[in-house]
């Protein structure tokens, strides 16, 4: 079964098209990297699928049903820079926010939620920072707080926006562990990613995007020199090293 079906998705910004007629299907249990040059609309794709920005056209289905009916199945790890980390609260509180959708209106997080949040922090190696003010965490630690928040959401499909950007080794490892765990549990993960060298290590599926999908499928088949050239156009020399790696693989 397909976890996510996107059909004829178009997004414009100030009249100029950012995404044009994007359509693809993501099978359940896959780990997909969304790859493409700057300005290819990767983050826009994620946000429009998640209904965070308006779409011109496009139909989005989650496990065969309209997005709005399946909202509880969606987990999201935004880019770190999208929030103001000076907000007066601690790490545990941010993780608890991942449960708000389950708790519902007018109710407070209870002991069960708090222990879930603590558990999640432990999984990403942040248990010692639960009471730390969030502005005093490093970039990687903030990223791990967001991961823990997504974790307690207990979603079926996870969307991550450049989680590896500018993080330390410990965080990178935490992200990879989490992705493997989700995959093991049969969950589906979509990740906007920009580092071509690590694509093959991280993802079993790749979506090559440049305003419109260039290719989608298992990494081995899709992540080829030819496809990358089609995606990145003239800028292919820019990605020299990974291109070399691929060529060597033959």
């Amino acid at each position: 079964m397909n976890a996510l079906t996107v059909d004829n998705l178009s997004v414009t910004y100030d009249k100029s098209p950012v995404l044009q007629r994007v359509g693809f299907e993501i099978p359940e249990g896959s780990l997909t990297g969304i790859i493409g040059p700057n300005g290819a609309g990767k983050s826009t794709l994620l946000k429009s699928v998640l209904h965070l920005i308006p779409r011109l056209t496009g139909d989005i289905k989650v496990y065969g049903k309209p997005y709005k009916e399946q909202r509880n199945l969606i987990g999201y790890v935004p880019q770190r820079s999208e929030v103001d980390w000076d907000f007066p609260t601690n790490a545990l509180d941010i993780v608890l926010m991942g449960r708000y959708g389950h708790i519902g209106l007018f109710r407070r997080p209870k002991k069960k939620e708090i222990s879930l949040a603590k558990e999640a922090l432990k999984k990403v190696g942040m248990e010692d920072y639960a009471n730390r003010q969030i502005s005093q965490l490093s970039g990687g630690q903030q990223q791990r707080v967001f991961l823990a928040r997504a974790l307690v959401q207990d979603a079926q499909i996870y969307f991550m926006d450049e989680p590896f950007a500018g993080v330390d080794a410990a965080t990178e490892k935490a992200i990879m562990n989490l992705m493997q765990q989700w995959k093991y549990e049969g969950k589906t993960v979509l990740v906007v990613h920009h580092d071509l060298q690590t694509v093959e290590d991280y993802f079993d599926h790749v979506l090559l995007l440049n305003k419109t999908p260039v290719s989608y499928g298992p990494t081995q088949q899709v992540f080829t020199m030819e496809n990358l050239e089609r995606t990145y156009g003239g800028a292919i020399s820019f990605i020299g090293k990974s291109a070399q790696v691929i060529q060597e693989r033959g």
Binding site: L50, P78, V83, P109
Partner: peptide, 22 residues
Amino acid sequence: MLFYKEIKLTTFDPQYAALIGI
């Protein structure tokens, strides 16, 4: 008091709040 956690979340991270249906 009624909307305490909704106010808090929409203030900190409105996109995420929208995502989980607030």
